[in-house]
């Protein structure tokens, strides 16, 4: 359905700021009818990729194709095919939700009767009946998101593109949006959504791509990606706050243990130990070994590998660490300017 080939995009490079390579030879292929997740920390290039797909931004190099239509030579055909729910909620505060939807319907050239029918359907689908005739300025974040989603769906697009659709939302709105997305996918709409919530992508997406520094570093179904890592994750703390020497001792002790494939000392978590284990009774063996060495066990937790482990494996850091490392570096003012026409 979507083919993004070798997309590159560089921002800035003016006198004031250093250029930013937002996309670096990004390739992505989204199968028709799937719910596809783009996962990555802030600044990985998710929004840039989606803006290029939606014809809002021209790539420096590369090609965009949706359902066989070349996006660079026929952007209008692409716009007809897709609905876009952007990250920044841009609504007209003075219009009522219904008026805003009607306006969007006109911009998609819906006939009056069809427009009316779609409004009724979508207001019902997204549970907006109680407030749709109030002015948008009075809406909560969740209401705005739902209205935005409805606007993106008005023309029955074959492809729905959502940029961080649930960021900052209350649980109820989030659940409502998830449900609608799943329903749409089941009815055959292809959905591409970006997120930096691991659990959102894990729960929703049929397939996903992990983005890092403007390129795809892992791609596949969530299950396949996690299975490829192999083994379970175990977090072990012998005490609430251990020290380097003790951690090293435990590491040596467990490294030889049968079924333990890897032991890493996590300094930032009070010298806890992260283990990759395989096999049925590894946990029992670990406990026995620790008891024999007269070591206490403060906490021992076993889990299946998560998408965060996939990210960790590919980049050498957790998604959280990646978020924190860019947190202070991005300038919202500059980014707003970049998105401004």
């Amino acid at each position: 359905m979507i083919e993004l080939q070798h997309l590159s995009k560089r921002y800035g490079g003016g006198s004031k700021q250093a250029p930013v390579q937002a996309l670096d030879d990004l390739c992505l292929s989204v199968p028709e009818g799937s719910l596809y997740g783009l996962l990555g920390p802030n600044g990985a290039g998710k929004t840039t990729a989606l803006r290029i797909l939606c014809t809002l931004l021209a790539p420096d190099t590369g090609s965009v194709s949706v359902a066989g239509v070349d996006g660079l030579s026929d952007p209008r055909a692409i716009r007809r095919l897709l609905g876009y729910v952007a990250q920044e909620v841009a609504i007209d505060k003075i219009l009522a939700g219904r008026e805003l939807l009607a306006l969007r319907g006109d911009l998609y050239h819906l006939g009056a009767a069809d427009r009316h029918r779609r409004l009724v359907e979508l207001i019902d689908l997204l549970g907006m009946d109680a407030w749709i005739d109030r002015r948008c300025g009075t809406y909560s974040g969740g209401m705005r998101r739902r209205l935005d989603l409805a606007a993106g769906l008005l023309h029955r697009p074959r492809l729905l593109v959502l940029d961080e659709p649930t960021v900052g939302l209350d649980i109820e709105s989030r659940a409502a949006i998830w449900q609608v997305l799943q329903q749409l996918r089941d009815q055959g709409t292809t959905i591409l959504l970006s997120s930096h919530y691991l659990e959102e992508v894990d729960a929703l997406a049929d397939r996903l791509a992990i983005l890092e520094a403007g390129r795809v570093i892992a791609e596949g179904t969530p299950e396949a990606l996690k299975d490829a890592l192999g083994g379970d994750r175990v977090t072990l703390r012998v005490r609430e706050f251990s020290d380097a020497a003790e951690a090293a001792r435990v590491q040596d002790l467990l490294q030889g243990c049968e079924g333990v494939r890897q032991v890493v000392v996590n300094r930032s978590q009070g010298y806890s130990l992260n283990l990759v284990v395989q096999g049925g009774d590894v946990i029992e063996r670990l406990r026995r070994q620790l008891t024999e060495a007269a070591l206490p066990v403060f906490a021992l937790a076993q889990s299946r590998p998560s998408l965060d482990d996939v990210y960790l494996q590919a980049t050498g850091r957790t998604l959280m660490d990646a978020e924190l490392s860019v947190a202070g570096l991005r300038d919202p003012k500059v980014e707003r300017k970049q998105s401004m026409r």
């Binding site: 809002l56 055909a77 841009a90 911009l107 998105s339």
Partner: peptide
């Protein structure tokens, strides 16, 4: 409209 991103919404629509 430019500043609040509303123009971008208009531009995503397949305006004739």
């Amino acid at each position: 409209d430019r500043e609040f991103g509303f123009l971008n919404r208009l531009l995503v629509a397949p305006l004739r």
